[in-house]
Structure formats: C-alpha cells, structure tokens
C-alpha cells in the first residue's frame, strides 16, 4: 500500500476530526485520495481511506461506487456535457458528439494520451445556460458543438495545468443560466471538484 504524504495525511486526519463520526469523512477523503493519485481513484487510495475511518475497503468501495464523481479511470481533464432535459432540448446530443469526436474517443472514453475524458452527464444545474458543460466541474455554459470542439482542442493541445470557469466561459461559452457576477479566481486542479477545505483546489 503506497502511503500518502505527511501533509495529505494531516489534512486527512483533520477532515476526520471535523465530523462527529469519522465515517462521515469518507466523501472528502475519497476526493483527497483522487488528488493524491493525480486523478483516478485507486484501490490503494480506498484502502487508506478505509484505514482512516474504520471501514473495510469494500465498505469504502460501496460508497465510492455509488457516486459518479469518484472515477476509477479518468484523464487529466474531465469534460462533462449535460444531456438532461433542458440541454437535451437545446442540442446536447450534438455538443456531446462533437466533443467526443474532437478528442477522438467514444462517449465516456479517455484520449490515448490521457489528456481528456469526455462524458455525458445528468443535469448539472445550468439548464438556463443550455447546453451546459463542465470541465473539471467548472462551468462553461451556452456551449455550441463548434465551441465544444474548440474547448476540447484547447484541452488536448495545451493540456493546461489547471482550469478556471470564468476564463473558459469567456473563450468557449455563450449565454449563462444567470449573471455569474464577479469572477472566482479558483483553479481547478483536476477531475475532482476544486474545494479548498478538501485540499482539492489550487491557486486563489
């Protein structure tokens, strides 16, 4: 079993301590496990999480596999195209097809170089900004098939270290579900939600 860095372990322990019951920390710890492994969730990651909270590894896996965001196989960036009803009505199918085609993978697949995974997802809460896309869970709204291609091209070609919602919206987005207000300078560091207290955000 590979070990986590001291700093990550410290963060893990403080997450465990922040709940009335250690098992409640399983979700944040799984994100931490993904960050530690550079993206995908691994068996070793789940073993460490299990150890930290007094679960057996399969109990951790039972939780992890219930959710869609603890991915076992994922590229450095995750492009999620919403296909639920509002986006469906406004052409999500084409946007998703364009994105997958641009990366050269079937839907759900990861580019051979590991740069990008393209998936279709259920409603991500940007229905007024259809078609909605997230890159590493950061929104880009009002995306056309052409914009989806450019977005994917950029991710594949430039393989940016991190992504930012407002930047991507400016370059690839269209109408938003609502006025986003001022910018949020947080960097998303990979295919997990960028959230400071979990140690899964960079920059800002």
């Amino acid at each position: 079993m590979s070990a986590w860095s001291d700093e990550t372990m410290e963060r893990a322990q403080s997450l465990v301590a922040s709940y009335p019951d250690p098992r409640s920390a399983v979700m944040p710890l799984l994100y931490l496990a993904m960050r530690e492994e550079g993206g995908p969730l691994t068996d070793d990651g789940m073993r460490i999480v299990a150890d930290l909270i007094g679960y057996t590894p399969v109990q951790v896996q039972a939780v992890a596999s219930f959710y869609t965001m603890y991915k076992r196989h994922v590229g450095r960036h995750l492009v999620s195209v919403c296909t639920s009803i509002s986006c469906h009505l406004l052409g999500a199918g084409e946007v998703l097809a364009a994105a997958a085609d641009e990366v050269g993978v079937p839907v759900g697949g990861t580019a051979e170089d590991g740069s990008v995974t393209v998936e279709g997802v259920e409603c991500i809460g940007a229905c007024g900004g259809a078609v909605a896309v997230q890159v590493d869970y950061e929104f880009v709204e009002g995306v056309t098939p052409e914009a989806a291609r450019s977005l994917c091209r950029w991710l594949v070609d430039e393989s940016p270290e991190t992504v930012r919602s407002d930047d991507m919206q400016e370059r690839f987005g269209g109408a938003t579900a609502f006025d986003w207000g001022s910018e949020d300078p947080t960097d998303a560091v990979g295919p997990m939600p960028a959230f400071g207290p979990y140690g899964t955000a960079g920059g800002a």
């Binding site: 679960y55 057996t56 399969v58 039972a62 219930f66």
Partner: peptide, 8 residues
C-alpha cells in the same frame, strides 16, 4: 463486512 453493494 467483506461483501457489499457496489455501484448503484
């Protein structure tokens, strides 16, 4: 607990 429900 060595067997569990996986996926959903």
């Amino acid at each position: 607990p060595l067997i569990e429900f996986l996926d959903r």
